[in-house]
Design a protein around this nucleic acid. Structure first.
Length: 416
DNA sequence: TCTGGGGTCCTAGGACCC
DNA sequence: TCTGGGGTCCTAGGACCC
């Protein structure tokens, strides 16, 4: 039996904890570079005119008309708030899988089943009291059903939805649209509807084997999960298999020197993440692109994949390859919009295969020292020269809130 | 003028082996 | 002249998620 616990309107809720003036007002949070809407308060959702992911410039009039408060995203704050929420939940439910920044699955099979609803309510109150954000909790025998129940929990006053009773879940599924099911995207929606599968109930009763032939093993699993047969177990923490870092630029970039600064900055970010999960990398891929939205300007996009001689997590070595790659990709006379790096085929650092022809070296890994300094004194206390100092190409974030919980200089001040 | 970022998994098809 | 059958591995691209 699962709980699915998720924070309502997560980014907006985080902002409201530290800025109560935002309560009961329409609020949106924008993606990097203030590009798209990535979080909306309930007030905004009710307007029905601001869909998730819409480019900000397309809704400027609506924002003005309804006095929607607009915030740049503050990922340092959200990541820290996420940690706090997850740690608090673990206090009540030790076996959990963190599924995304704002939701987790919990195995509640060993709990007193008769008391589950009360327990969910209790957790909800405590998270609101301790962290300050509202959460919803759904209860169901499979993850897919828990996802369905979560939609209903969001709309209910209690914030809890129990879908354990097969009669209730059958009835619920008969009015639940196919496109709202976890794992059904736009393409599959279209194909399923062409077979006259309109609701979750229709999919649940379609022969699963046939679904597998027509679609894939995943949709077959979805079919079983709707019937209450568990196909997706709770996952333990698994290190990432690839780590990417990329950003759009705040303005068009034309100079190679600036691209080198940018790719160096992203490489440094990706490498730090890799070391945090104790992995090493053997293959990297670097890419570069102009804006794909401007039909008048020449479009150019290219990528280069490089195999490193030896698995490593040393930023200096990876930087050398990344810079070499960006030089190779660069073509003059284009207006570049974005570049990025992917660290591929990550393996645990304690499982490195030694190359018989390679000399064994025992260099001190300076990267680890850099990491520990930055952890102690704050991000970018020390950085690689190639990353540049001014970084005038950085993304825009016009209205970002303080790093209330992660930076000594920006802590919350309590006034008496 | 302005359009995000970071992931996972599956499948088909090519290349290769015996 | 006639050109099989069974298998593995890798990769690119598609689809999906938050």
């Amino acid at each position: 039996m699962f709980f699915l616990i998720d924070v309502n309107n997560f980014y907006v809720s985080c902002e409201r904890v530290f800025n109560p003036a935002l309560e009961n007002k329409p609020v949106v949070v924008l993606s990097n570079n203030d590009g798209c809407v990535v979080a909306r308060s309930n007030e905004v959702k009710l307007l029905k005119t601001v869909p998730m992911g819409i480019p900000f410039f397309q809704i400027k009039d609506i924002v003005k008309k309804h006095r929607i408060q607009t915030l740049s995203s503050n990922y340092a704050l959200y990541a820290n708030m996420s940690q706090r929420v997850m740690q608090s939940i673990q206090h009540f439910c030790p076996i959990l899988e963190i599924y995304s920044i704002d939701e987790c699955f919990v195995d509640v099979s060993d709990f007193d089943q008769a008391a589950l609803i009360d327990y969910a309510g209790h957790i909800r109150n405590k998270i609101k009291q301790w962290i300050g954000v509202p959460i919803s909790i759904s209860i169901a025998p499979t993850k897919t059903l828990a996802k369905v129940a979560n939609h209903l929990a969001k709309k209910s006053l209690s914030g809890v939805c129990d879908l354990r009773n097969p009669e209730i879940w059958n009835k619920t599924l008969s009015t639940f649209s196919i496109e709202d099911i976890w794992g059904i995207g736009r393409r599959l929606e279209k194909k399923l509807k062409s077979l006259n599968i309109q609701t979750a109930y229709d999919l649940m009763h379609y022969p699963a084997k046939q679904i597998r032939q027509l679609f894939s093993v995943n949709i077959e699993k979805t079919c079983y999960e709707l019937q209450g047969i568990k196909c997706y177990p709770l996952e333990k923490f698994i290190p990432k298999k690839c780590i990417q870092s990329s950003r759009s630029f705040g303005r068009p970039v034309t100079e190679l020197s600036e691209l080198i600064e940018a790719i160096s900055t992203y490489t440094s970010i990706a490498c730090e993440k890799m070391r945090r999960q104790k992995s090493v990398v053997t293959t990297i891929s670097v890419y570069l692109t102009t804006s794909r939205f401007n039909p008048l300007k020449n479009y150019y996009a290219n990528q280069a994949t490089i195999s490193l001689q030896q698995p490593t997590n040393d930023t200096r070595k990876i930087l050398a390859s990344a810079i070499q790659a960006i030089k190779q990709l660069y073509q003059p006379n284009y207006l570049y919009k974005k570049c990025g790096i992917s660290l591929l085929d990550l393996i645990p650092e304690n499982q490195i295969q030694q190359d018989i022809l390679m000399q064994v070296t025992h260099n001190t890994n300076i990267s680890l020292i850099v990491d520990s300094i930055n952890l102690k004194f704050g991000k970018n206390t020390i950085l690689y020269g190639a990353e540049g100092i001014d970084k005038s190409w950085l993304a825009k974030s016009g209205s970002i809130s303080q790093k209330y919980t992660t930076d000594w200089k920006e802590l919350v001040v309590a006034k008496m």
